[in-house]
């Protein structure tokens, strides 16, 4: 036995069983390390976060795809949409008018939502939360648009309007997002929750309008 052991060249040890086992262990260890790094490090959210361009009502907020300026904010429990239908909410309809000017090429801001201080997101829809972009806006020609979004009254104070191009929130990563502080307080919420005056939601129009 001892003689055979001596006769074997030392390098053959490398082709023995521990080599295979070590390979398997290393492979699994590498995968596990990759998985652990991916889940433990905050890279996913941090690296993919959108760039928030912030401002208030009346500020011209510049983004990669154009600029946005909120011109007025109002609220009530009732709205009249551009097709003449009246919607009644148990919460509050927040109606925001703003001007969008595209940059570079015709573009459509398809994602419009109100975000409250708790982080809840209230998006527009076709009928219940009307917003019509009027299609892609030509660069340099201001497009006046309006959105009405129903939210619970406790979401009004401190609410922000969030606007960006991509309708799928997954695609907001690393893109510009305009965030407008609507400057709302609890007093606005209380007054609007008690108001039964139907607010009209304007149809999209081009040009600077009467406001500016």
């Amino acid at each position: 036995m001892g003689g055979r052991r001596v006769a074997r060249p030392p390098s053959s040890r490398l082709t023995g069983l521990p080599r295979q086992a070590a390979f398997a262990v290393l492979l699994v260890a590498a995968l596990a390390t990759g998985r652990a790094v991916e889940t433990l490090m905050p890279v996913g959210d941090e690296v993919a976060a959108p760039f928030e361009r912030t401002g208030g009502v009346g500020d011209r907020i510049e983004a990669r795809w154009g600029d946005v300026e909120v011109t007025s904010v109002a609220g009530s429990t009732r709205i009249e949409d551009p097709y003449g239908a009246t919607h009644v909410t148990g919460g509050v309809y927040v109606v925001v008018d703003w001007t969008y000017t595209a940059a570079g090429e015709p573009q459509v801001p398809a994602w419009v939502a109100i975000r409250d201080t708790e982080g809840r997101v209230f998006r527009t829809s076709l009928e219940r939360n009307p917003y019509s972009s009027g299609g892609a806006a030509q660069p340099g020609i201001p497009r006046r648009v309006a959105a009405a979004i129903e939210v619970p009254a406790d979401a009004v104070a401190g609410a922000e309007l969030v606007i960006t191009l991509e309708p799928n929130p997954e695609n907001h990563r690393r893109d510009d997002v305009a965030v407008v502080d609507l400057g709302l307080t609890q007093d606005d919420a209380d007054a609007w929750a008690a108001s039964e005056e139907p607010l009209e939601v304007a149809e999209p129009a081009d040009g600077p309008g009467a406001m500016s």
């Binding site: 570079g104 090429e105 015709p106 009027g134 299609g135 892609a136 030509q138 660069p139 497009r143 149809e203 999209p204 129009a205 081009d206």
Partner: peptide, 9 residues
């Protein structure tokens, strides 16, 4: 770029 649009506001 400014595009031809068949319908816009």
């Amino acid at each position: 770029e400014y595009a031809y649009q068949s319908s816009s506001p």
